[in-house]
Amino acid sequence: MVASSAGRFSEAGLAQLTEIVSHYPDAGGAILPALWLAQREYGGWLPAEAVAEVAARLGRPASEVQGVASFYTMYNMQQRGRHHIEVCTCLTCGCLGAYEVIDRLEQLLGIHLGQTTPDGEFSLTEAECLNYCEAATVVQVGERYFGGVNAGNVADLIDRLRGSDDCTPVSLSNAIVEAIVPGRAGATHG
């Protein structure tokens, strides 16, 4: 059961929420997927009203939903850049040029890690292992993965994103990866 509430959920979003709630024995189970929906409905982040709407629709206290949302790093509790760039610097990427990629990105964008460009186009953070180590260095932008990024080709990635109107989730395809990094990307052997 999804309760009525003031808020910004679209009809399609509400239909999805109703379907999702039916998968769980109680509404609590739907908190994570509902937050994902809310993040989409509210333009990529979770302002207090988004948390309040999820809580109201699921019949849970807002404090509980806020507590859950703030635990997970993929729920954006503040607005990010239109292109949110996360560079994996974990063990393999860190040994294969990730820090040079960050240095170059800071130069290109004129911001430091944790910051957003003044025009709101780009934000930059360091990521923990994205589990695509075969294509190190790996960069995640929104829901897309880019493999084989290095200090030499990361400017191409920025150009590509800058020209792209499409910041909505696009699923990864090898074509996207290979366009950025000929040779190395998606380096699955065999």
Binding site: T92, C95, L96, C133, A136, A187, H189, G190
Partner: peptide, 9 residues
Amino acid sequence: SGHVARPGN
């Protein structure tokens, strides 16, 4: 992964 010629599964 890491310093190998053909990383992968």
